[in-house]
């Protein structure tokens, strides 16, 4: 194993370290989660500049260290400018990187997660939508093999047109019928939107205007992902309180 290695990745978060350094946490394509020290990055004349800020998509050259790697060079793959062009985009981007931070594991490459993250950040930069983040969360859960059951009752397995699915149970991961009711109530509209997201009609879902329906889908998505990672997602909570 050579001491130096190259990879592409997205910066998930940063921690201040000593006087002018930062620990940068990236989700990379080939190495999974990487924690590396960026020396002097907080100085105005740092060669890294804004390239290692959260949500940056960068090509990096790293030294393998004992505990933390060291960032030797960083080059932008995509500009960060659109992400910091509005408060909405910045908060959506933060919600995306926070979720990936929870799912990404050190030493376990997950190129699909990398591709999904790059995709969602691009989508936020181009055209943020009320359902960008909820759709991303559902897709993450589906990628983890936790696609919710939406066409039958997860309890009794009852399906068909005569069953009315009235609630969504995050523990069970799907809709439940009136007789088995548990979890939180769900509207038929929300089920339709979730089917759009998970059934290959994402474009239709993303073109929906913000409404009580999108809020319902968003709340369910957050709750389900929180259930999976066993943690509260902070960025999204802040966004719901101070959202547009």
């Amino acid at each position: 194993m050579s001491e130096l290695y190259r990879d592409v990745g997205v910066v998930l978060r940063t921690y201040k370290l000593r006087e002018a350094d930062r620990i940068v946490v990236l989700h990379t394509e080939a190495n999974g989660k990487v924690r590396a020290v960026a020396k002097g990055v907080r100085k105005t004349k740092s060669k890294f500049g804004a390239r290692l800020e959260p949500m940056s998509h960068v090509r990096v050259l790293l030294y393998r260290g004992r505990e933390l790697d060291i960032v030797s060079q960083a080059e932008s793959v995509e500009p960060l400018t659109p992400m910091l062009s509005s408060l909405d985009r910045a908060t959506l981007g933060m919600a995306a990187v926070e979720a990936v931070d929870q799912l990404s594991i050190e030493g376990e490459p997950d190129p699909r997660l990398y591709k999904m993250l790059v995709g969602v950040l691009r989508s936020i930069a181009e055209q943020p939508s009320a359902l960008t983040i909820p759709a991303f969360y559902w897709k993450l859960l589906a990628a983890a093999g936790l696609s919710p059951v939406l066409d039958a009752c997860v309890h009794c397995g009852e399906s068909g047109t005569e069953v009315s699915l009235v609630a969504f149970d995050t523990n069970e991961g799907g809709t439940v019928c009136r007789a088995c009711r548990s979890g939180v109530g769900i509207s038929q509209g929300a089920i339709t939107v979730m089917e759009e997201i998970l059934g290959g009609r994402l474009r239709e879902a993303l073109s929906r205007e913000e409404s009580p329906l999108t809020h319902e889908v968003a709340a369910l998505a957050t709750r389900s992902l929180e259930h999976h990672v066993e943690r509260r997602l902070r960025a999204v909570a802040m966004f719901e309180v101070h959202g547009t």
Binding site: K45, G49, A50, R51, S76, P79
Partner: peptide
């Protein structure tokens, strides 16, 4: 750009701004 720095080392976001 910081005074005394080189343009070629500036990152895209800073240089853009």
């Amino acid at each position: 750009l910081p005074v005394g720095g080189d343009l070629e080392y500036a990152d895209e976001l800073t240089l853009g701004r």
